[in-house]
Amino acid sequence: MAYQPPKQSLAGQIVDVVVLLVMTVGALYVPLYMGLAGAAKTPAPIENPTWEALGQNEAEQSQWAALGFPDAASANDIITARFDYTFSWAALIVMVVAVVGYFILVVRLSDKEYREVIEERFGKNGKG
């Protein structure tokens, strides 16, 4: 006999939508809002900057000027900002485990559900 799902009330539907919204905003937006996420470049401005000291040739100097940076001091932070790519192997392993574990979890639970779908659609043991 085919599985008959319960009918969900309007209030239940609203609760489900709220739960999804809370998960979305909570997991993704709150870390950003609290400044916990992000990879800001760190500027390392030099003292008394000149275009030459910042490694900018003549053509690049005119490009900076056209972009609204009239002198080397105004571009000092942007030119000297760099990402820091040092990382711990433990953090990398955590990431790998999280990604692989997530897919294993989803595929295994999906397979359990999929067998129910196939059984109801085609019948047990291929006797559809």
Binding site: A27, P31, A37, F87, A91, M95, A98
Partner: peptide, 11 residues
């Protein structure tokens, strides 16, 4: 992961 690992874990 290089630079945005926190977002990856959050997601």
């Amino acid at each position: 992961f290089l630079g945005y690992g926190t977002q990856l874990i959050a997601m």
